[in-house]
């Protein structure tokens, strides 16, 4: 690897390296795109755009450094610079995702007497997930972003600062406000689940 300086990689070598180092991030990247755009087609476009940009700038990517953070940063910038402008519609709340799962109650009913404790637990898990998703989707995109980066993807504050191009202090305060906002939205639900404040 030390000889890479000055030596141009062949197209095949570059492609192989690109795929090996950056494609494993596809899953978290797509999930991030989806949580930002709240639309599968938009997420698809955004991820493709991100990978194409990453390919163009791949020579500047240092092997072994944080590929995930690098791609997340490119995606976030693409989202802000181009994507948001393109789709002028107000922030959508993702009802479609919720709709797909809300039938789990019926499923339990259809299962009749035989429905097991496991199944019931599973549908409760689904309901909690739906509740969290709709609360999260209702947050402003900046708040949604820090919560996803921190709680879902496990980035450190320092990594988040780099991805978002903001100081760590801002990461902290934004995360704090985002959590308060999410807490508010979930509070009613939490109370109904027995978590009383």
């Amino acid at each position: 690897m030390s000889e890479q300086t000055g030596k141009q990689l062949s197209k095949e070598e570059k492609d192989a390296r690109f795929e090996a180092e950056l494609l494993p991030v596809l899953d978290p990247l797509y999930n991030f795109a989806y949580r930002l755009t709240l639309d599968e087609d938009d997420a698809n476009d955004l991820v493709q755009e991100t990978y194409l940009k990453a390919y163009r700038f791949f020579d500047y990517f240092e092997q072994g450094t944080n590929a995930k953070a690098w791609l997340f940063r490119i995606l976030k910038n693409s989202f802000i610079n181009e994507f948001r402008k393109k789709s002028k519609q107000p922030a959508k709340v993702d009802y479609s995702e919720v709709e797909g799962y809300y039938n789990s109650d019926d499923v339990e009913g259809e299962g009749g007497v035989a429905s097991t404790t496991d199944m019931r637990t599973e549908s409760v898990q689904d309901l909690i997930g739906d509740e969290v998703a709709s609360a999260l989707n209702a947050l402003p995109v900046d708040f949604r972003t820090v919560i996803i980066l921190c709680d879902l993807e496990g980035f450190t504050y320092e990594e988040m600062a780099k991805i978002l191009d903001i100081p760590i202090g801002t990461v902290r305060s934004r995360l704090h406000r985002a959590r308060n906002s999410l807490k508010e939205k979930l509070e009613k639900y939490a109370k109904s689940m027995g978590y009383n404040s």
């Binding site: 596809l26 899953d27 797509y30 999930n31 989806y34 599968e40 997420a43 698809n44 995702e97 799962y101 898990q125 909690i128 997930g129 969290v132 998703a133 999260l136 919560i147 996803i148 709680d151 879902l152 496990g154 999410l182 979930l186």
Partner: peptide, 12 residues
């Protein structure tokens, strides 16, 4: 709640 319950979407 976020880390343990938010469903991940499946990549096409």
């Amino acid at each position: 709640l976020v880390s343990g319950h938010l469903k991940r979407v499946i990549v096409p």
